[in-house]
Amino acid sequence: MKSQFKNKSQRDYWGIAFLLPSLLILTLCYLLPMFMDLYYSFTSYNIIQEPKFIGLENYRELFSDKILGISLRNTLVYTIIVVPLQTVLALVFAVLLARVCSFRWGNLVKSILFIPVITSMILVGTIWRIFLTTDGGYVNNILQFFNIAPVNWLGGINSSLFSICLITVWKLTGYFLVIYYAAIMDIPKSYYEAAKVDGSNQIQQFWHITLPLLKPITYLVVTLGTIWSFQVFDLVYTMTGGGPGFSTTTLVLSIYNTAFKQFRMGYASSISIFFILIILVISVVQKYGFREKS
């Protein structure tokens, strides 16, 4: 009877029974694939024949692969454009909505800017590919109205990646806005009242109260944005297919093409391992940054 009161330390097997379904699926769909990634990265494997061990050959190729280099560069450029843009926009919008506009208006804007967030990337890619058509697309139509020459949004080597960046920012800003908005609402009103008594204006309040208190959230928004940017796939797949040339080929698209267009599973695994390492580095930097600053 007494042991029944010690719920936590009670050594029955119910805990394991409750955990088992989850553990089995996790092992099958996550843990096993992680180890197989590592194993296949040392092999040459085309699915039909048995995998052949080739040592570090894949990794040697990895560092001399020109197209992979381009896709890594594209992913980096994409990240460098997208992350600051969406972070600053979300922050500025959230601060204005929470600190200047009325509560009602803030909520309304927030809910409408959130609509692109819940839609699928494939849908976003499809509609924007149509709207960005060079001849007669909506965007160029509007530009023409202002006497601006039509832009070859998705067909130009330099413009296509930039267009995809803009669409990403269009889709995700609402998401980060919601995070910022909630965080600003959590800042006690008394901080601002005290500052007002000291005679500081709204802009000073932003620099000295809002921004410092939002630092942990900014870390979250930036790391999350960076990690998501490195995973970009759906949008380039539907809008440009990686082209023109390789101008919008990204890291994940490279993995996909290598594995499922060229059927080089071993080499694709080695790119995957490289990809995991990049994400790990970002996560570690985030952890370190968090500890340093907060």
């Binding site: 099958l28 769909c29 996550y30 096993l32 694939p33 992680m34 197989m36 990634d37 296949y40 699915i47 990690i227 490195f230 995973q231 796939f233 994940v252 993995i255 996909y256 594995a259 499922f260 599973m265 694709a268 695994s269 995957s272 391992i273 990809f275 995991i276 994400i279 790990l280 996560s283």
Partner: peptide
């Protein structure tokens, strides 16, 4: 931490 896209190749094989 490991992104889903990084394990799709072995997941497909399994």
């Amino acid at each position: 931490i490991v992104p889903g896209q990084a394990i799709i190749v072995p997941l497909f094989i399994i």
